[in-house]
Structures are given as structure tokens and as C-alpha cells.
Design a protein around this nucleic acid. Structure first.
Lengths: 254, 254
DNA sequence: CGATTCATTGACCGGGATCAAGAACCGTGG
DNA sequence: CCACGGTTCTTGATCCCGGTCAATGAATCG
């Protein structure tokens, strides 16, 4: 139990017990343990399996012509990496770990059967894709319109929210094992400037970061700094049912 | 025939005649004619229908807290606006026209039935969602990493490609009825700076813009200026089958 | 305990924002 | 046909956010 994929998909809609069991079985089948900074799948490749992050932290990224790296999304436990790989001939971006992680592999055919036979699961996966799209759109605003300060605040706040929703965050803090260079690659800033903005967030008492352990000391303040609007995550059920799992986990944040 | 939705979906995979006919019937049923700068659907709203751009030009956008507008995607003929609306409770962004447009409306239930009964169409729509995601990811790189000059060049090149793929571009030029303010809202630049970059592109003989009519005089040059990589559009079939419709339309561009 | 990665600090520079003012281009009505 | 008010486009002057370069600590790890 406490399977992160189940938790992730249930952010949208409660699943019947049988669906849960199916998902748990699938994700506990083949798992690979990766260190930090290893690739799950590379741009241009095609994999017969689809991958799910079970623990740790990964990201979608692309290496640019000039050698730079753009991180387009963080993947937290429960996030499917490439649920749609069997539709496309090749990945148009790479997926790599940022921290030591456990990645589950589900055969593409199994996945297809699952999507065809269990409409509830198919719906949940589709919804997940839409949430991903929402996150991407928000990141465009982030990169295009917000200044460096809000951008960093935004990124941290979103990660806090998503980690909370999937249940791997205590009240006080959370593990977010990224370097400032990683943050720079995700925000389109330079590491130097990321450093300065983090200092400002700390000076203002919004966050504490010691090593890989982050603590958001003033969630409301951080949210203000980020100019945050949570609607795009479509955590509707959670908001509407404050008694639900996810609702409790996100209390006071959205 | 020459239904833009059919053309769009067939970029991925040839559809059986019956599927085509179904799509043609659906899109010719209820249509609305909108002027420029009208909303198809607004953030927070829920519509019983899903919408398809049949002609003209629309965009996904969001109004920010400071009053600014961020355009996150352009929608050209054949593009579905909100194929997934029946999954979500509310739109997390708005869709509006930039030019006078014809928008087809398909009832949500009809859409659901269609997706369940015609796997080929469901697959094509799913693929379309994935292409959208690819475009979004590319835009993040665009906004995050490229300088203003490449950003504008990129935007124009992508529009050229997408209009070509759907068959509404002659060899010489195409209608792209946007203001420089629209381009600014799409790229995260100021109108003033957009203007200067367009001047540069013109000086260098890459494009000609007279009124709403644009002509790309040097596609290869524009592509270079844009640092363009087309893989994310997943127009695989087109590349692999140079004899296909789409292949012919895109010759020399990807 | 060296060696390599990561965080931090400072000096300087430049791309693009901002502000402001004209010019060209509308559609509209007299 | 022209006069008009309103967009849109263009140009110039100035400023500032964030990039660049470079050096120094701090931390992690064979």
C-alpha cells in the first residue's frame, strides 16, 4: 500500500480496489534502481516499457545545440514518465534522475491492455496527461513573464505542493536533492543568479535549505512571492472533499 | 472534403473513409462564426461542447495578475481547442480568436461515444494531445533559452510549418493576421522589441510582411535563425512517406 | 587528505524593458 | 472625397535585471 502511482492517480478520482491492486502489482513487478544523474530513457529512443517514478526525483530534459540543458519538468514519485511511448516512434526529450531513484517498468502491451480493459485507469492516465500539460503551460508563463525571484519561488512552491499531494512531505520539510545548477536549468537562469534569489528567499524567512533538505517556513509568504494560482493542477476533487486523503494532505496550500 | 480536422488527424495516420466521413459530419454540424478578438471559451468555464478551429486563427492564453496576457499556443485550422473538457471541471486557460474564425462545436457526449467506438480516431486525438505537449515543451525552451531574435524566428517558422501541414499555405506566403502585440504576448517580449527583431529578419531577407500577409522568402535561413529542430512535432509518417499528402506539403521544411 | 563538485561573492556588461513621441494605417461618418 | 479618432507600427533615449567572468570557500568523496 501507499503505492505512489495509486496515490497519484487517485488525486483525480478514487479507484476501485481491483484497479488499485492491478496497479500495485504492475509497479512492483520489474523495478530498476538508478543512481543520481542517470538516464531513464533518452531522446530519440524507443522503449518497449513505460516507466513510473516510484521514489527519488527525475526530470524531463533536453540537451540544446549549445550544450546547455533545459529541464522542462520535474517528476516526483507516482509520475509516469512516458505512458504514451507506444503511440510515438521515439521520445522527443530525455528523462533522467536527479537523485537516486527507483523506477518501475511496465511492458507496453500490458499497459495497452490495461487502458482498454479498465476505463477508470485510462481516464486517470488521461487526466494525468492533462495535468502535465497544465504544468507545462504554467511553466511557460513562469519562464516568459515572471522575474527571477518569483520564478524560483514558484518552482519551489509547486514542488512542495506536488510532493505533498503524493504524500512524501512531512509538515516541516522535504527532501529535494537538486543542485542550484539543476534549478538554473529548470528556470532558464544562471546558477549564480539562482543562488542570489535563494539567498533572498532565505533572508525573507520563506525557506530554509540545509543540504538536500528543504523546509518551507512560510508557505503563505512563498506563495505570495510566487504569485501562485493552483487551479491548473486540477486537484478539484481534493478541494471539494476536504475529508479526502489528498484534501488533508494539501490543507492550507491551495 | 479538405476538412481541416481530418487533415490534422491524418498527419499521424491515415483514417478509414468512414472515420473521415464521421469527422466531416461532426464538424459541419454546428459552427459559429467569430470575429477577431472574441473568446471561444474562458478560463474557469465549462462547456458541454468541444471546439475545433475550422478556419482563421485562435490561441490559448491566460490573463495574468498584473493584467498582462500570455499566449501559450496558437491554434490553426484543424486544431481541437478542448477535446478533453469533459474530463476536467473547468478550463485552466482561455481560448480566443486572433482573426475572424469559424469554430465547430461537437457535443461532449458525441465526442465520448466517438472516442470509445472508433479507436483510430481516439488514437489520433491522443496523438494530437502529445503533439501539443511537444509544442509546449519546445516553447519552454524557446522562452527560457533562446534570445529574442531566434525566438521570433522560431515562432514564425513553426507557424509556417503547421499551416503548411494543414494545407492553408501557398508556396509564396500565408495569412497570419496577428499584431506585433500578439507576438509579444506569445514570446514574452515587449511589442517594441518584437518590432526591432522583425525589422532585422526583414533586413536579412528572411521574411516579408505586408499587412496581415506574411511571406517567408528564405525558409532555410529562417530555420537557421530559429535554431529549429522539428522532431517534437512527430510528423514521422510524413517524413517516412514522402509520397503522402502531408509529406508533399512539408517538403524541404523538416 | 587531495580532488572534484557545489555554493558564494564581487565587478562589470549587455540584452531587452521602459518611457515617450511620431508616423502610418485603418474603419467610420460627414 | 476628406476629416477623425483609434489602433498599430516605428524610432530614440535611458535604465536595470540578470548574464558573464573569475576567484574563493565549503562540502563531499574516493
Amino acid at each position: 500500500m501507499d503505492n505512489p502511482l495509486v496515490m497519484k492517480l487517485e488525486q483525480f478520482r478514487r479507484l476501485p480496489d481491483e484497479d488499485r491492486r492491478l496497479l500495485e502489482d504492475l509497479t512492483s513487478g520489474r523495478q530498476q534502481r538508478l543512481g543520481a544523474r542517470e538516464d531513464v530513457i533518452r531522446e530519440g529512443e524507443h522503449s518497449p516499457d513505460i516507466h513510473i517514478v516510484m521514489s527519488g526525483l527525475a526530470c524531463r530534459y533536453k540537451i540544446l545545440a549549445n550544450g546547455g540543458r533545459q529541464i522542462m519538468a520535474f517528476l516526483v514519485p507516482g509520475d509516469p514518465c512516458d505512458a504514451e511511448i507506444f503511440i510515438l516512434k521515439a521520445m522527443d526529450h530525455s528523462i533522467g534522475t536527479l537523485a537516486p531513484s527507483v523506477i518501475a517498468a511496465i511492458p507496453g502491451e500490458t499497459m495497452q491492455e490495461l487502458l482498454l480493459s479498465r476505463p477508470g485507469i485510462a481516464l486517470a492516465f488521461w487526466w494525468n496527461t492533462l495535468q502535465d500539460e497544465g504544468v507545462l503551460r504554467e511553466r511557460i508563463i513562469d519562464v516568459g513573464r515572471r522575474d527571477a525571484y518569483s520564478r524560483i519561488a514558484f518552482l519551489i512552491y509547486e514542488i512542495l505542493l506536488r510532493l505533498r499531494a503524493v504524500g512524501v512531505v512531512g509538515d516541516t520539510g522535504f527532501d529535494f536533492p537538486v543542485t542550484q545548477t539543476d534549478l538554473a536549468d529548470a528556470t532558464g537562469l544562471t546558477p549564480v543568479h539562482v543562488n542570489r534569489m535563494l539567498q533572498r528567499l532565505r533572508e525573507e524567512g520563506l525557506i530554509v535549505a540545509e543540504g538536500r533538505r528543504w523546509t518551507v517556513t512560510d508557505p503563505a509568504g512563498l506563495r505570495r512571492a510566487a504569485e501562485y494560482e493552483a487551479s491548473y493542477l486540477h486537484l478539484d476533487r481534493a478541494k471539494d472533499e476536504p475529508e479526502s486523503e489528498v484534501g488533508r494532505r494539501l490543507k492550507g496550500l491551495i
